[in-house]
Simulated assay, not measured.
Amino acid sequence: MDGTRTRTKISIKSLLTHAVLWVFVGIILVPILWTFFTSLKTPVEIAHGTFLPEVWRWENYRIAWEQAEFPRKFLNSFIVAITVTLGQIVTSAMAGYALARMEFRGRDLIFNVAIASMLISEQIIIVPLYVMLAKFGWIDSYKGLAIPWFFNGFGVFLFRQFFLTIPKDIEEAAIVDGASRFRILWQIMLPLATPAVLTLFMFTFIAEWNSLFKWLILVKSPEMRNVQLGLTIFQEQFIAQYHLLTAATILVSLPSVILFLLGQRYYIKGIATTGVKG
């Protein structure tokens, strides 16, 4: 009898939990679905407030793509995002390995400084950074938009924590065989740290793809604008044409959404591993 009551309580609890979760899923999905359906409507249908379009007008995406001049902006965003992402993976892996495996004076101080750098926003450093980049002649260029963002305190923390979970026996065996530190890092440690690599790749690429502030400050010519800056300008020009505005918004969001859906398993594993050992 007691066993039946216990199973009944568990079933009710599970049912309530799933019900609450589905409510939250609905809260999240309704605005997304509304945006998607709005992008396929006509202005008349939007004014009438209908939820579903009578005819799905996929040409809204083509019009938005052409009107916003997205091809060049997508290229600019991709070049800067992939460059910054690869740069952060290289610098974070090297720093994380040194802080996790090598003994040297000031190691803990360097690690603390790397963690503290996460508290500094780019709005704080943008003025001296702009002055420095102007002296280099890097304003309105890929170099100025990418190179200063090659360091990431979170990436250093992520790789250090992941490398601490890898048994030292693997590394010691490689040292006995005559492998150098660089060879151990790139041929042994980094392949084992695939979840950390993919996690940082996702974090950085999505952040750079959605970046707007530095592009507002460091970009002057229309040819160097990214998708977020282009979307902002497009919004000002087509503020009343919600079907085109929502279509442009979805086009800009697609790369980030697709990347997250493809790598979410590694993302969760990489985040979970950062707290395993300190």
Rank of each mutant, 00 (worst) to 15 (best):
A47W: 00
H48A: 14
H48E: 13
T50S: 15
F51A: 12
L52I: 06
L52K: 06
L52E: 07
P53M: 02
E54L: 13
V55A: 14
W56F: 14
W56V: 04
R57D: 12
R57A: 12
R57H: 14
W58G: 14
N60I: 01
N60R: 00
I63Y: 13
W65A: 09
W65R: 04
E66K: 11
E66A: 12
Q67V: 11
A68L: 06
E69T: 07
E69D: 13
F70R: 10
P71H: 09
P71L: 07
R72C: 07
R72Y: 06
R72N: 12
K73S: 02
K73R: 15
K73L: 03
F74S: 02
L75N: 06
L75E: 10
I79G: 02
I79S: 03
V80T: 09
V80K: 02
I82T: 10
V84S: 04
V84Y: 03
T85C: 09
T85P: 04
L86R: 01
L86N: 05
L86E: 04
G87H: 01
Q88G: 07
I89F: 01
I89G: 04
V90P: 01
T91M: 06
A93C: 15
A95G: 06
A95T: 04
G96W: 01
G96P: 00
G96V: 05
G96H: 03
L99F: 15
A100Y: 00
M102V: 09
E103M: 07
E103F: 03
E103G: 08
E103W: 04
E103K: 15
F104V: 05
F104C: 10
